[in-house]
Amino acid sequence: MRILNICAYTWAIGGPARIIYDHTSEVLRQGHQVDILSPMTPGEKLYPTPEGARLIPCRRTTPLSTIYREFSVDLYRYLKKHIHEYDLIHVHGIWHFGSLAPFLIPNQVPKVITIHGLLDRWAVEHSKWKKQLVTLLYQKKLLGKADLIQINNTDEEQDVIRYLGYRPPNMAIIPNGMKIADYSSLPEKGIFRKHFAIPSDRKMVLFMGRLNTKKGLDLLLPAFMKYLHQHNDALLVLAGPDDGYLAQAEEFIQLNALQDSIRLVGMLTDSVKKAALADADLFVLPSYSEGFSIAVLEAMTAQVPALVSDRVGFGDYIQAHQAAYLTPLTVEGVAEGLEKTLQDATYRENIRQNAYQMVLQEFDIQVVANRLLEEYKKIQR
Results as ranks from 00 to 15, higher is better:
Y227F: 04
D243Q: 11
F224I: 09
N212S: 15
G240W: 04
V237T: 10
T269I: 07
L255E: 13
F252C: 09
L268T: 00
V237C: 07
L217R: 01
G266F: 14
Q303W: 07
P222L: 15
L285T: 14
E250G: 05
F314H: 02
K215C: 01
Q322H: 15
E290Q: 03
L235S: 12
N256V: 13
D310T: 12
F224S: 01
I253P: 04
S289T: 05
Q248E: 12
A249S: 04
V296T: 14
G240Y: 07
Y317G: 10
L238D: 03
S261E: 12
D316A: 15
L220S: 12
N256M: 05
P222K: 06
G291I: 07
M267R: 06
E298R: 03
L285S: 09
K214F: 02
R311K: 14
D243W: 08
D218K: 15
K215M: 04
A280K: 02
I294F: 15
A280M: 04
L297R: 00
L258M: 13
H321Q: 13
D310I: 04
G216A: 01
I294P: 05
V304F: 00
G240C: 05
K214R: 08
L211G: 13
Y317T: 08
V304W: 00
V308K: 00
Q259C: 11
H321E: 06
F252R: 03
K274S: 13
V265L: 02
F283L: 05
A276K: 05
M300Q: 03
I294N: 15
L297K: 14
K214E: 00
M267P: 06
Y227R: 00
A275D: 06
H321W: 14
D310G: 10
G313N: 05
L220E: 11
P241G: 11
G315M: 04
S289W: 03
V308Y: 00
S309L: 00
A275W: 07
L220V: 14
L264P: 02
V308L: 09
P305H: 04
S271V: 13
L285M: 13
Q322R: 11
V265N: 03
T301N: 07
A275I: 12
V308S: 02
P305I: 01
L220W: 12
D243S: 11
F292E: 12
M225V: 14
D270K: 12
D279H: 01
A323Q: 07
N232P: 10
F283D: 01
V237G: 05
K273A: 04
L217T: 01
V272Y: 12
I262S: 06
G216R: 00
T301W: 03
I253F: 12
D279A: 02
E251S: 14
A223C: 11
Q248K: 10
